[in-house]
Amino acid sequence: GATAVSEWTERKTADGKTYYYNNRTLESTWEKPQELK
């Protein structure tokens, strides 16, 4: 079946920190989402 992984995108802030952005829920998080573990 379909997985939720594609909803999350790994992004970088202007100062180079990595965060994760969810295209479906429009939420962002510093922690790696469960779906990516």
Rank of each mutant, 00 (worst) to 15 (best):
S6H: 11
W30T: 07
N23K: 11
T18G: 02
K32N: 05
K32T: 08
G16P: 00
G16Q: 03
N23T: 15
Y19A: 01
E31T: 11
R11M: 15
Y20N: 00
Y20R: 00
L36F: 12
T18R: 06
E27W: 03
L26M: 15
T18E: 03
W30N: 06
Y19P: 01
L26E: 12
E7W: 06
E10D: 03
G1V: 13
N23E: 14
P33L: 02
T13N: 07
K37F: 14
V5C: 09
T25M: 01
R11N: 04
Y19H: 02
K37T: 14
A4L: 12
T3K: 07
V5R: 07
Y21F: 15
P33N: 02
P33W: 02
E10V: 10
E7K: 03
T13P: 00
T13A: 07
W8R: 00
E35P: 06
G16M: 03
T29S: 11
K17P: 01
Y21L: 04
Y19I: 04
K32Y: 07
Y19Q: 03
L26H: 15
E10G: 01
D15V: 03
N23F: 10
S6I: 10
Y21C: 05
W30G: 04
K37S: 13
T13K: 03
K17L: 10
T13G: 07
T18P: 05
T18S: 07
R24Y: 11
K37M: 15
K37L: 15
Y19E: 04
Q34A: 14
Y19W: 06
R24H: 08
K17A: 08
K17T: 09
Q34F: 13
T29A: 08
R24M: 09
R11D: 02
E7P: 06
L26V: 03
Y21R: 03
D15A: 08
G16D: 03
G1F: 13
N22A: 00
R24N: 07
Q34L: 13
T3D: 12
D15L: 06
L36S: 06
G16T: 00
K17E: 08
R24K: 10
E31M: 08
K32M: 12
W8A: 00
A14T: 10
K32H: 04
K17S: 07
N22K: 01
K37P: 10
Q34R: 09
K12V: 13
A14M: 09
T18I: 14
S6E: 11
L36E: 07
T3E: 12
N23P: 09
S6K: 09
S6A: 11
Y21E: 03
E10I: 10
A14W: 10
R11S: 05
S28F: 14
R24L: 11
N22F: 01
R11H: 11
G1P: 12
K12W: 08
S6R: 09
E10S: 04
W30H: 05
T3F: 10
E10N: 02
A2R: 07
L36A: 06
L36M: 10
L36H: 07
Y20E: 00
T18V: 13
A14Y: 08
A14P: 14
E7F: 08
D15G: 08
R24V: 12
K37V: 15
Y20M: 01
T13I: 02
N23G: 07
W8N: 00
W30A: 05
R11L: 14
A2K: 09
L36Y: 11
E35D: 11
Q34M: 12
N23L: 15
E27K: 08
Q34N: 12
G1T: 13
K32L: 10
T25N: 03
W30P: 04
T25K: 02
Y19L: 04
K17F: 08
E10F: 03
S6Y: 09
D15R: 05
L26R: 14
Q34Y: 10
S28Y: 14
D15S: 10
T9M: 10
V5H: 13
K17H: 09
T25Q: 01
R11F: 11
W8V: 01
A4H: 13
K37G: 15
K37H: 11
W30R: 04
Y21P: 00
R11A: 07
A14V: 10
V5M: 14
V5K: 09
E35M: 07
A2I: 14
L26P: 00
T3H: 13
L36W: 09
T29Y: 06
N22R: 01
R11V: 11
L36D: 07
T13E: 03
Y19T: 02
N22G: 00
E27Y: 04
K12R: 12
G1R: 08
T13Y: 04
K17Y: 09
R11C: 15
T18N: 04
E27D: 05
E35V: 08
E27R: 06
K17N: 06
Y19V: 04
S28W: 15
G16Y: 02
T29P: 01
A2H: 13
T3Q: 13
Y20A: 00
N22S: 03
D15N: 09
A2V: 14
Y19K: 02
T25G: 01
P33A: 02
W8F: 02
D15T: 08
L26K: 15
T25F: 02
Q34G: 11
V5G: 12
T29W: 05
E10Y: 04
A2T: 13
W30I: 05
L26S: 11
N22V: 00
S6N: 13
K32F: 05
G16K: 02
Y20L: 01
T25R: 02
Y21I: 07
S28A: 11
Q34W: 14
K12S: 08
A2P: 14
W8L: 01
T18W: 04
A4Y: 06
N22P: 00
K32W: 05
T29Q: 13
K17M: 09
R24E: 05
P33E: 02
K12A: 06
Y20D: 00
W8M: 01
W8T: 00
W8K: 00
Y19F: 10
T13M: 05
T9W: 06
T18D: 02
D15Y: 08
T3P: 12
K12H: 10
A2S: 14
S28R: 11
W8E: 00
E10Q: 06
E31W: 07
E35Q: 09
Q34D: 15
T9H: 09
L26W: 07
W30Y: 10
P33V: 03
K37Q: 15
Q34I: 13
E7G: 08
Y19M: 04
T29D: 03
K32G: 03
E31K: 07
S6P: 11
K37A: 15
E7S: 06
G16E: 03
P33T: 02
E27A: 06
T25P: 00
D15W: 07
P33H: 02
E35G: 09
T29H: 05
W8Y: 02
E31G: 04
A2F: 12
G16W: 02
K32R: 12
K37R: 12
Y21V: 08
G1A: 14
A2G: 14
K17D: 06
Y20I: 00
G16A: 03
V5L: 13
S6M: 11
T13W: 03
E10R: 04
P33R: 02
A14K: 11
E35F: 06
E7N: 07
P33C: 03
Y20S: 00
R11P: 00
S6F: 09
Y20V: 00
P33F: 02
K32V: 11
A4F: 06
K12G: 03
Y20W: 15
W30S: 06
D15P: 01
V5S: 13
N22Y: 01
T9G: 05
Y20T: 00
K17W: 06
G16R: 01
T18F: 05
S28I: 15
T9N: 06
Q34K: 10
V5E: 13
N23V: 15
N22M: 01
K37E: 14
T9R: 08
T29I: 08
L36N: 07
